[in-house]
């Protein structure tokens, strides 16, 4: 998978390139918006990481321009400003997610994976979290190499949760999306599907964590993580 990093700070850019390469991505790096615009138009990158504070044309303008040219590559915005306006503008012009500097490498990698996963879901590819993988087009799930039998509603809940990783999905949002193609589903009914999914995922290394009062999150269970 190929990623373009557009960042002018040499030390950070080198760190990003190295960190991403260690994770198995192929990475190109550019320090300014003008060459990046050309590169994004010519090469089908799986993801672009764009810093807002570039010299000359800034990152927001770069995203605006490539989106105008019809480039659909998902974009992760890096910003040094934590004001909401930058984020809103960033997402408005066509960014897909943002990360405020400074960040920890694992956080960046998680966002990168989530963005690629989401864009693949849109392109009907396979989503994967740890040993769990979902084929969005064929509505089939594999767990550690064996097929996982799911009902329609179970599939729907799991798909929502996997697409959102590492973010928490509100129980109400799950209920709303189930209600779209069925009669009214209450948030309590969602609990039933989640507990069935938990039973099916038990012991696989992937689990569904309850966030009291909000909803659920799919996590890869680390060996030493405290029990929920």
């Amino acid at each position: 998978m190929r990623i373009l990093v557009v960042e002018d700070d040499v030390m950070l850019a080198a760190g990003l390139v190295e960190g991403l390469e260690r994770e198995g991505f192929r990475v190109d790096q550019l320090g300014a918006a003008e060459p990046a615009e050309g590169a994004l138009g010519l090469t089908a990158y799986d993801l672009a990481i764009v810093d807002i504070g570039l010299p000359g044309i800034d990152g927001l303008e770069l995203i605006r321009r490539v989106r105008r040219r019809g480039v659909l590559t998902p974009v992760l915005i890096l910003t040094a400003r934590d004001g909401l306006d930058d984020r809103v503008v960033g997402l408005d012009v066509g960014g897909d997610d943002y990360l405020v500097k400074p960040f920890l490498l694992p956080e960046l990698l998680a966002r990168v994976r989530a963005l690629i996963r989401r864009s693949r879901a849109a392109a009907s590819l396979v989503l994967a979290v740890g040993p769990l993988s979902l084929d969005v087009q064929r509505h089939s799930a594999m767990l550690g190499g064996t097929a996982l039998e799911l009902t329609g509603r179970e599939w729907n809940v799991l798909e929502q949760l996997v697409i959102a990783v590492p973010r928490v999905v509100a129980k109400q949002k799950l209920a709303d999306s189930l209600s779209q193609w069925d009669k009214e589903i209450t948030p309590n009914a969602v609990e039933i599907y989640v507990s069935r999914l938990r039973a099916k995922l038990a012991g696989s290394g992937v689990g569904i964590r309850t966030v009291r009062g909000i909803g659920y999150r799919v996590e890869v269970e680390a060996g030493d993580a405290p029990a929920p």
Partner: peptide, 24 residues
């Protein structure tokens, strides 16, 4: 503030990333 944020945070991000890579 916005410039100060940029000037402070970008090198910090670089430092943090390099340190994490060095750890391994």
């Amino acid at each position: 503030l916005s410039n100060a944020a940029h000037q402070l945070r970008t090198p910090l991000a670089g430092l943090q990333t390099q340190l994490e890579l060095a750890t391994a």
